[in-house]
Amino acid sequence: MELLAIIGALITLAGSIFLLLGAIGLLRMPDSYNRIQAGTKASTLGTILSFAGILLIMPGWWGKLLVLIISVIITNPVSSHVLARAAHYMGVPLTKTTLVDKYREEEEYIAVKDQNNEST
């Protein structure tokens, strides 16, 4: 029992280190999209790991911790996707080393189509 608790505590510690790496990535990355990549994703795994560690320490709390893990897994990708689309729509610039931007052509195509629909 004691061994399981110590393993759980170490998993929580690993999760907190992932959270710290996510925050460092948030500071170091050059543009918004890369910040979303480094920030929200690494911290998702960190949070899941720390909930799993608490789950190993206190097995009696499994119901609420499971609901928390599921809600983090469902809500997090949605919010980062919505933020990325809003940033691209606002015209937040990509960093200088970016290789391709296939999405901009598509966006211009949609804009032209909308204008045609409004004028007719």
């Binding site: 959270l19 929200t40 911290s43 608490i54 928390l68």
Partner: peptide, 25 residues
């Protein structure tokens, strides 16, 4: 820009969820 602030708000929330769970134990 604004999106950077919203992203860091999101990361702060996720980190505080983990802190709340730890403090709960």
């Amino acid at each position: 820009c604004y999106t950077d602030r919203v992203i860091s708000f999101d990361v702060m929330t996720i980190a505080s969820l983990a802190i709340i769970a730890t403090v709960a134990y």
